[in-house]
Simulated scan of single mutants.
Amino acid sequence: MSHILLVIPIGLIVIIAAVDLALPRSVHLGPLLVVAPALTASFAGPRCTAAIGALALAADVVSGLGQGVLRSSEHNVEMLALFAVSAVVVVFRVVHERHLAVLHQVRSVSEIAQRVLLRPLPRRVGPLRIASIYLAAAAEARIGGDLYAAARTDGVTRLLIGDVRGKGLPAISDAAASLCAFREASHGPTTLPELMTRMETSLCQNLTEHAETDTDAQECFVTAAVAEIPDAEPKVHVIACGHPPPLLLRGNRVLTLQPDQVAPPLGLELLTESEPRPATFPFEPGDILLLYTDGVIEARDRTGTFFDLPAHLGERAGEDAGTLVERLRERLFEHVNGHLHDDTAMIAVERLATPEP
């Protein structure tokens, strides 16, 4: 694309030189040639910018010869200025290219880190079809404050979604500690309350270690919701720790799975005082369970109106989990006019009539 755009500065050089030769000696357009290398620097690399600067300098020499002012002091100053500006924009492009290379490396590392932390969820486990989506608020970011995971053991599927409240390395470390604790505990013979307690213990230990070197660690905690779905029973068990309750889509009805007991967020050292109790809700074939972070329901449009997730969720017309999540993503971006102000994650779980062979 940049090679095609080179036609513009080359055309400007030719036009300026031709018009300059046609005008009287008292009118000189040579100073306008500086536009060509400056314009080239906006889209091309340093080599192309230097080549356009050299071409503009050559055109200025030809123009000076044609008008008979090549050896005049005014023309010499003009050529020196053109050379200086061309050199400056070339140096600018060199520095810019180096910054782009560093940024590319940082993006690659952050993308790898995200893949390690947020492993892709399976599309099909047992009688469940799963679809997920993660949207970072920062356009250049690959790692945000939201997290999700899935674990499978003994005919039971467990799903985690959470939101780290904090910033910097402590927030990323808390997300890693929560995910590791969830994955480790889910594969063992642990109940859902025991799972949350182990996540709380792991997160508090992680926060204590970071508090010695980073004062921001004291402000970190994690809101989380865990859903346990057995294969043999049309039920779902939910524990919410300061997290928005899941939504259940049954036909065109949207039900809020609000547990009777909402536990405090993880990391505040309050969960160990009273073990949370899971709430049980019907989850029948054809139903879709939606887990989400508050970045969805707190997204605002230009007028300050929040995104009405239940209303958009209830517009389902025979959609499966994957199609539903994609439609919600499109509606969310339309609502915020393409600019998210908080990280967003959603997991849609559809119970099928027949389990996976």
Rank of each mutant, 00 (worst) to 15 (best):
V109E: 07
S108L: 12
G314D: 03
Q218V: 12
I297A: 10
A175K: 05
H187N: 06
V156W: 02
V262A: 11
P189R: 00
V296I: 14
Q67H: 13
G286Y: 00
I15T: 15
A137T: 02
R71E: 13
T305C: 14
A59C: 05
V85N: 08
G126S: 06
P278M: 03
C180M: 15
L352P: 05
L82A: 07
L289N: 04
V109M: 05
I8K: 03
V27I: 14
A240M: 08
E140V: 08
A87D: 03
V88F: 14
S2E: 13
P46E: 04
L135N: 06
A50Y: 08
L121Q: 04
S178N: 05
I15Q: 08
Q261V: 13
E111S: 12
P259D: 08
G251T: 10
F92I: 08
D301F: 08
I4A: 15
M1V: 15
V77W: 15
R93M: 08
P245V: 04
D294H: 00
G295S: 06
L80P: 07
L135C: 11
E275D: 12
A113D: 13
V156Q: 11
T190F: 14
H28I: 11
R351V: 02
M79E: 06
E326F: 02
E200Q: 15
I16W: 05
E273M: 11
E111Y: 06
V77E: 14
V91C: 11
L332K: 02
L103V: 09
G30L: 05
E334V: 11
E228M: 09
I10P: 06
L255C: 11
A299F: 04
D20T: 00
G30D: 02
E315D: 15
D214M: 00
T305M: 13
R351Q: 02
A217H: 07
L203P: 01
R351G: 01
D214I: 01
V262S: 13
R129L: 09
H75V: 05
V88K: 14
A137C: 04
S186G: 00
V125L: 09
Q205I: 13
Y292A: 06
A81R: 13
V116S: 11
L247A: 07
